[in-house]
Every structure is written in C-alpha cells, then in structure tokens.
Design a protein around this nucleic acid. Structure first.
Lengths: 251, 251
DNA sequence: GCAAAAGTGTTGGGCCTACACCCATGA
DNA sequence: TCATGGGTGTAGGCCCAACACTTTTGC
C-alpha cells in the first residue's frame, strides 16, 4: 500500500459528531469590494475557511456560531446555512494531513467528513477578527485575489457566493454588510459587487427609494474627498416587509 | 431513570456514516394538486418521508438516489438538496423507537441524527411507487390533507415546499413535474399550486409564450370532457437558458 | 341546450432603461 | 483650477395587471 493511501484512524471523541463539520464563509464589504475572512494555518502558506467539528449537544446553527467565535473571535453574526458538501473525496487527505501534521494529530483526521456550509454577513467596520491557536493569521481577502486555499474550500466559497446572489433579493444583505449609516453609492457598489455588474446610479437610487427601505438622514459623510454624499439608514421593518413580498428584485 | 429516557445505543455499523441521514420529499402533480410521496410504517398508522442512512462509500447525492430507489422503487429522478436539519432533538426518540420497535432494532437508533433534505420532482403519470420491507404503503398525499406524520418530517416538508417556491424561477420545475406533452391550463395550475395563488390565464399564457420555453404541438388533448386543450412540449434548451437569465420570474 | 373548461385581445399605468450635465470638495 | 465622484430628471418602450366573451365538447 502506498503511503498516500495509508488509512487514517477515525476520530473517536464521544462529544463530537463523527465526520460532521461546519465551514463558514464570512462576507464583508469594504472599498467597493466583497471580501471573505480566511485563516492561515500555522507554519504553512495554506489558507482555509474557519471551520470545525459539530458537537453532540449543540444544534448545527449553534455549532456554526461557536465555531466562528472560537476560530475568528467574532460573535453574534448574521448566519445562514447554504449547502452541505458530501462528496466521498472532498480533498486529498494524505496531502493535507501531512501538511498540517504539526497542528492536527493523525487520530484527529476523519477518513471522510461531510461539511455543512454557512455564510455570515458582517459589518466590516465593526468587526475585529483574530486568529486562533491553529492559525497565524485571520485576514480579509478580496474575492478576486484569493491566496492558496486548502481542502475543497474554494468550491465552498464559490457556492456561497452563488447562494448570496440568489438570496440577495430575500435576505437583508445590505443591512448586515453595511455600517448603520451609509451612502447610496456604497449600497450601489455592494449590489454591483455581489451581482458582478454595473448598475446605473439614477435608476438604482430610484428603485431603492421607491421601496422605502432606506431613510435619508440629515447628514452627509464627512472627511471624504470630493463631494460629500448623503447618509442613509435602513428602515428595518420596511426592509423585511419588502423582502418578504419579493419587491426588491435585482437580476 | 424512567423508561422513556433510557439511553439508546448508537449504531455501530462500519459501512454507515454515524448519525447522518437523508430524507426525500418527492413532489408530484396530478389533478391540479401538488402531492408528495409518503411511506406508512408497517403495523402503525404513522407515515414518514422516504429516508435512510448515508453510507461511507457514496456521496450524499448518490445516497439520496439509492435511498429513494430502495424505499420507493423510483430511480433516475430530478433531485436537489435543499436544507440540512440539525437540531439536537429533532423528535421524541423514546416515543418513536417504541412505536417502531417491531421494525427497527434498538441498536439501530441513533441518539441524534442530522438529516440532509432533498426534494425530487417526478412526472406523476410515469412513476409507480411501491413500499419497501419496512412499509405497508407508499402513496401520494395531497399537501393540504396530510396524514399523521412521524419524526420532524412535517417541518421538512414545509421547508421543501418553501424551497420549491423560491427555486421555481431557477429550476426546470415544469419540465420535471409534467408529462412530456401537457396543456397550458395544466402548466398554469402547477404554478398556482406551488405559489398558492390564482393567476390570470391570458396573462399567464402570454408570459410563457413570450419566453419561448414551450412549443405548441399540432395536437389537442383527447378523451377529455369539455373543450379539448392544445398540447405543448418544453424546449429544454430554451427553458434552461431562460431560467439561467432569471427571465421566468413569478412572485 | 346546458354546464364546464379552453381560448383569446386590448388598454392603461407603472416600471425599467437609457442617457448627460452640474455640483461639491480636496488636492 | 482641476480631477474626482455625487447628485439628479426625462422620455420611450416594455411589461404587467385588469378585464369578458366566444368556442368546444360531453352529457
């Protein structure tokens, strides 16, 4: 038997659900770009999503919250389950267990794991991620310029983005990704980043204002080059209501 | 310790993934009603979704196909994963294991299981379900008139229906739920059943025809009371294309 | 002939798209 | 003063919703 195919013992921790993990795609928005949060495994050049194993005494939603807290320090995030990944071979176990041997003991690897994907939406300006004991960095990366990603996490990221696009019209994406006060161009650039295309600013503004999901404040953004934009805030109740009615549909 | 709370041993079959199950919501359409396929557990009055345990050497998509084949006899269905259910207590295990004690040995019960939900879309006229060894019936039920449902399967059905509604605009629902040849009123009633509301027939026909996803055949439906409707068939390529562009949006 | 379902067109209003210039600000 | 980005209105077309009568057929 080749070394690559050497069988790896199963984890046998009574408090863990065997072979069931959660991986989280944390989306943020800054400078007109969608970003995601990645962890760099200690002593390697490989990055991956914050993820871990589900425990016996927690729901998977609770597990997603706990795991994000443990691995990135972030809590109380807007979290949504989007897909479960259950291929038989999701990545090369021999390669990955060797690369991470100094961090994860051999008996902590599953031969196969099913991973439930969650995405989180956070206000980039209010969140201060920090790496955990397995990582030496926890940083934002632009979607267009991702580093070397381990496991099948690139695929998970793609699927998360695809889900976010579909749910943009039904989830309070703007509310969760933007600061409390934001300008119309910021909101527009968020939609552009998620949809991957340009929108006409006049038409965009009309459409948003017509639904009544935002209120214009008696303030403009300060300390900004060029003309200062007005600030807006979401009318959460109205926003929820419009989303439920499918009345904020972009394609 | 009360008998009801007696701990139940974990399944320890090496070929199974512990605590991971799949449940399938099979949708059909007949007589203007959406229906789903349920199994009646032998010797009980309880019905549930076709489901079972995932095995080590199959992907979860393969598992869903296998499970549907084993439990209902149906194969080659249009299947989509829609949600994973991972509450700690998804149902009363003591009650269910007692009710099904004559069918499922005690050591085959998990203390807790996570279930991945799939929905299937089938052509009611071409499918002949049959119960398996654990069931004495495998029958279609109208969504509005469901019998006593075991486990948390009612919740799973609700979520499946909700997902179907959302994905109606992005999945070839009509193609999979209707016979090859169908009338415009049939297609309309399908949309009405899924969306849960009436649609004006003139506006519906115009909208469908404008997209070009169906072709009118030189045939009318035979053996039908009253005026015979024209038959149509899907232009699959065009249908796919229109769905991808989001051009068949109903709300 | 009557009951039941299928088939079909028009109109008005709202929504969406396309499009260009002036304004405010910091450098 | 210049460069940069913000803010705004209009016109045309398309789409959508509302609406009712005729046709066909089986009984």
């Amino acid at each position: 038997m080749k070394e690559e195919q050497e069988p790896i013992k199963k984890v046998n921790e009574p408090n863990l659900i065997p072979q069931l993990t959660i991986d989280c795609v944390v989306f943020g928005f800054h400078d007109g770009n969608l970003k995601i949060l990645l962890l760099k495994w200690k002593g390697t050049k490989g990055w991956s999503l914050p993820g871990s194993i589900v425990m016996q005494d927690e729901s998977i939603d609770d597990a997603a919250n706990r795991i994000l807290k443990e691995r990135t320090g972030l809590s109380d995030l807007f979290l949504r389950q989007f897909h479960t990944f259950g291929e038989v071979k999701r990545y090369n176990i021999a390669k990955h267990s060797k690369m991470l041997a100094h961090l994860i003991e051999k008996n902590l690897w599953f031969e196969r794991a099913i991973s439930i994907g969650y995405y989180a939406l956070v206000d980039y300006t209010e969140v201060f991620p920090r790496p955990d004991e397995f990582s030496d960095a926890c940083e934002w990366w632009e979607l267009e310029e991702l580093p070397t990603i381990l496991f099948d996490h690139k695929k998970i990221i793609q699927k998360a983005l695809q889900s976010l696009r579909l749910e943009l019209n039904f989830q309070p994406v703007g509310y969760n990704l933007l600061p409390k006060k934001f300008s119309m161009p910021e909101l527009q650039r968020l939609y552009e980043a998620i949809l991957g295309k340009k929108i006409d600013p006049r038409n965009f503004q009309k459409k948003i204002l017509k639904t009544g999901v935002v209120n214009r404040l008696n303030e403009v953004k300060k300390g900004v080059a060029h003309r200062a934009p007005f600030l807006y805030s979401f009318d959460c109740k109205k926003y929820q209501q419009v989303l439920e009615e499918g009345g904020l549909f972009f394609s």
